[in-house]
Simulated assay, not measured.
Amino acid sequence: MPRVQLPAVTPKRRAWNKGRLVGQKRPLLPKQVWAIRARLELTGNLRDLALFNVAIDSKLRGCDLVSLKTSDLIRDDRLRERVSIVQSKTNKPVQFELAENTLATVTNWIKSPEMMGCQFMFPSRFHDRPHISTRQYGRLVRDWVISIGLEPSGYGTHSMRRTKVAEIYRKTGNLRAVQLLLGHTKIDSTVRYLGVELEDALSIAERIDI
């Protein structure tokens, strides 16, 4: 009996996002921010507390946050309330403010023995790396949200970037302010980033009387 040549079967590759929740990550609510902050304060983890607070206030992308230098935040031996850095993605400057609570936690962290002689704000505990990696930062964010009972698949490093601007937008509806704070070159990017829908835009317009 002649042999039948069957067509070759190429095994299907498992989709990278199978079983994962993908898409835009949710910002933290104010009560969730305070819950994470309280847990970090209780554990006495100065680095993670400073990292968390700076992440919320700075609204920086992970790559820019982890590579912050002490000289970015300190000038003339004083912590700066307003900081300006050049974003690695756009090569354009962006400014951010540090709240009083953040200034206090950063001060405590800088004065700790672990920071002696460190050039970077969040040095790595591995000798071959000058600062923590974005992957390590992502793992820390995951640990933080899990610690207060949130589903980690819905949150990520961009949750930290979006948290404060989402609250600013909710309270003011000022897209231009949010655009400047995020360092976006186009307002369209800000609209997509915040997930602004038509109903949001209409409700904002209804509150403006000219």
Rank of each mutant, 00 (worst) to 15 (best):
V4A: 07
P7C: 03
P7E: 09
A8K: 10
V9I: 14
V9E: 10
T10N: 04
R13G: 05
A15W: 02
N17C: 00
G19C: 08
G19F: 09
R20W: 10
G23W: 04
L29C: 01
P30D: 07
P30I: 10
K31G: 02
V33E: 09
W34N: 04
A35S: 13
I36G: 01
A38E: 14
A38R: 13
L42D: 14
L46P: 10
R47I: 07
D48A: 06
D48C: 03
L49F: 12
L49R: 12
F52C: 14
F52V: 13
N53D: 13
N53C: 15
D57C: 11
R61D: 08
G62A: 15
G62H: 03
C63A: 15
C63P: 03
D64W: 06
V66G: 08
L68M: 04
T70H: 02
I74V: 15
R78E: 13
R78I: 10
I85M: 07
Q87P: 03
S88F: 03
S88Q: 15
K89C: 02
T90V: 09
N91W: 01
N91E: 11
K92Q: 15
V94S: 05
E100T: 14
T102H: 03
T102P: 06
T107K: 14
T107W: 00
N108P: 00
K111I: 00
P113N: 10
M116G: 03
M116L: 14
C118K: 15
F120Y: 15
F120K: 01
F120S: 02
F120D: 05
M121I: 00
F122S: 02
P123V: 05
R129L: 15
H131Y: 15
H131L: 06
I132M: 13
R135A: 08
Y137D: 05
G138P: 02
G138E: 12
R139S: 12
L140Y: 06
V141T: 07
R142T: 11
D143T: 03
D143Q: 11
D143S: 13
I146V: 12
I146G: 00
G149F: 07
G154E: 12
Y155M: 05
Y155P: 01
T157S: 15
H158K: 02
H158M: 05
S159D: 04
S159Y: 03
S159M: 02
M160V: 00
R161G: 10
R162M: 03
T163E: 04
K164E: 05
A166N: 02
A166K: 06
A177Y: 04
V178Q: 08
Q179M: 11
Q179P: 10
L180S: 07
L180C: 03
L181R: 02
L182P: 12
T185P: 00
K186H: 14
I187P: 03
I187T: 08
I187S: 00
S189F: 01
S189P: 05
V191Q: 14
L194K: 07
G195Q: 09
E199G: 08
E199S: 12
S203T: 11
I204H: 06
I204R: 08
A205G: 13
A205S: 06
I208L: 10
I208Q: 12
I210V: 11
